[in-house]
Write a protein that binds this DNA or RNA. Structure first.
Lengths: 128, 128
DNA sequence: CCGCTATATAAATGGGCGCTTATAAATGTC
DNA sequence: GACATTTATAAGCGCCCATTTATATAGCGG
């Protein structure tokens, strides 16, 4: 009952912070970029596809960064035998984008309120 | 001429990283949130409006966080006398959102190409 | 069981970040 | 000029993060 009222609770900012910090690294941005172009990928293939400053990224480092992304909920993993296939959680990623958007333009403003701007019929509940 | 071709150059990731790290802090998220609701604001008023864990944020800390956001290009400042009015650079913020979007869904896919939507000779995305 | 492969974890290290306290710099007021 | 106000910067500190190297876990094939 502390933050109450509107949605800008501290918890929301805390969660957003975690996701942003997980994304705020060049190696992890590359990982996300590669995962975004493939439905699934095992760790070794991913590591061999990551060339960042003209250098490969070592396997333990890829594993460590993947753990960070997984902790942030951005990457899901599926074990099969000794391989671990990882994929981008696009829903979570989209949620992050939405939270970032809401931060500067609260949902209350985006969802066209009651009043329609006298030209367009309001399309309020069209939100997905 | 190093990275050429597609937009996923290392520099882009580096810049995105800087912005994401600037945003990846609870205090700075609050600052952005407050600035998003006001066109302009001097530092003292901003500090007095920031209550984060039930505690105020000290003036030097606000100034320090503002410097971080300014370095990332997310806030602009305008001096008038001894006050410094700061505002959110919404364009830059939107650019960040766009870069994040492009990361998982390259612009080539989003920008509906030349083909007219007439008959839908289905080709590219079909993806949700 | 033994080796091989795939992945994760530990230890060690360097560096940067967030915070506090104190102080400086700049500007307005009397 | 003395003083108050606004903002920035410096020093110090603890902590977390990114990286490397080395090693552990676990499945697989002979």
């Amino acid at each position: 009952m502390n933050e109450s009222i509107h949605g800008s609770g501290a918890d929301e900012f805390l969660e957003l912070k975690h996701v942003l910090r997980a994304l705020g690294d060049v190696v992890r941005l590359h990982i996300v970029s590669v995962l975004a172009g493939n439905t699934e990928m095992n760790v070794t293939d991913l590591a061999q596809m990551l060339i960042i400053n003209g250098r490969y990224v070592s396997q333990p480092l890829v594993s460590w960064h993947l753990a960070t992304l997984r902790r942030a909920g951005l990457v899901q993993v599926r074990r099969t035998g000794r391989q671990v296939y990882c994929s981008l959680d696009r829903e979570r990623y989209a949620l992050c984008l939405q939270m970032l958007g809401d931060l500067v333009q609260p949902a209350a403003l985006r969802a066209a309120p009651v009043i329609s701007p006298a030209g367009q019929p309001d399309l309020s509940p069209a939100r997905q």
